[in-house]
Measured scan of single mutants.
Amino acid sequence: MISNAKIARINELAAKAKAGVITEEEKAEQQKLRQEYLK
């Protein structure tokens, strides 16, 4: 099960992506976390 901290990070990265200020490194982290969440 995914931790609350990881869910919070997913939401934080989603907000950054929506604002258009996300880095390529953060995009990769976001994809990794989303895949983990979906498992």
Rank of each mutant, 00 (worst) to 15 (best):
L33E: 02
K39S: 14
E25P: 05
N4I: 14
V21E: 12
I22H: 00
K18A: 15
L38V: 09
K16L: 10
L13V: 01
E29L: 04
L38H: 11
K6C: 09
E24W: 06
A17W: 03
I7R: 11
Y37M: 14
N11P: 01
L33I: 06
R9N: 01
E36S: 04
A14W: 07
I2G: 09
N11H: 15
Q35Y: 09
A17I: 05
L33D: 02
E26A: 00
I2K: 06
Q30L: 15
T23M: 02
A15F: 05
A5N: 10
E12V: 05
E36W: 04
M1K: 14
E29R: 00
T23D: 04
A19Y: 06
E24I: 08
N4Q: 14
K27W: 09
A14D: 13
R9M: 03
E29I: 03
R34T: 15
I10A: 06
K27A: 11
T23I: 01
K6T: 14
N11I: 15
K6S: 10
R34N: 15
E24D: 10
Q35W: 10
M1V: 12
I10P: 01
E29M: 03
I22L: 13
N4Y: 02
N11L: 14
E29S: 01
A8V: 07
L33R: 03
Y37V: 12
E36G: 03
A28C: 08
A28E: 14
A15N: 09
G20D: 05
Q35V: 07
A8S: 09
I7A: 07
A14V: 09
K18L: 13
E36A: 04
R9Y: 02
K16A: 05
E26D: 03
L13T: 01
E29N: 00
I10S: 05
E24N: 11
N11F: 10
A14M: 11
K6N: 08
E24F: 05
R9H: 02
N11R: 14
Y37L: 15
S3F: 02
I2R: 06
M1A: 12
K18H: 10
S3E: 11
L33F: 01
K16V: 04
E26R: 00
E24M: 08
A14K: 07
A19H: 07
I7P: 04
K27Y: 11
I7D: 04
T23K: 03
Q31C: 13
I22R: 01
G20R: 05
Q35R: 08
K16R: 13
E29D: 03
Q35K: 12
E26K: 00
Q30E: 14
E25T: 07
Q35I: 10
K18G: 06
S3P: 12
E26W: 00
S3W: 00
Q35F: 08
I7F: 02
K27F: 10
A17C: 14
A17K: 05
T23G: 03
V21M: 11
N11E: 11
Y37S: 10
E12M: 05
L33T: 03
K39E: 15
L13G: 01
A8F: 02
A14S: 07
G20M: 04
Q31E: 15
N11V: 14
E25M: 08
K6V: 15
M1F: 11
E24L: 08
N4T: 13
K18V: 11
L33V: 03
R9F: 02
I22T: 02
E25W: 07
R9V: 02
Q30D: 07
E25H: 06
V21L: 12
K18N: 09
K6G: 06
Q35M: 12
G20I: 01
K18I: 12
E25D: 11
K39R: 08
Q31W: 04
Y37F: 13
Q31P: 01
A8E: 13
A5F: 00
E26M: 02
A5S: 11
A8P: 03
V21D: 10
I7N: 05
I2M: 13
A19F: 06
I22W: 03
A17R: 07
L13H: 01
L13P: 03
S3C: 11
I2F: 05
L38M: 11
L33W: 01
M1S: 13
I2T: 10
A8N: 09
Y37Q: 14
T23Y: 00
L13F: 00
I2H: 09
A5L: 05
N4H: 14
K18W: 04
E29T: 01
K39N: 15
R9A: 02
A28P: 00
A15V: 09
T23F: 00
E36Y: 02
R9S: 02
A17T: 07
V21C: 09
A19R: 10
I7T: 06
E26Q: 05
A8C: 10
L38S: 08
Q30Y: 15
Q30R: 09
N11Y: 10
E24H: 06
K32M: 11
L38A: 12
E12I: 06
A19Q: 10
K27E: 12
M1D: 12
I10Y: 11
Q30T: 04
L38K: 07
I2P: 14
A17E: 15
L13A: 01
I2S: 08
K18Q: 08
E25Q: 10
K16T: 01
A15E: 12
Y37H: 10
E36V: 01
L13Q: 01
A28H: 10
A17V: 06
A28Y: 09
N11D: 08
A5K: 09
K32A: 11
A28N: 12
A14I: 11
K32F: 10
A14Y: 05
E25A: 10
A17N: 04
K16S: 03
K39C: 13
I2L: 11
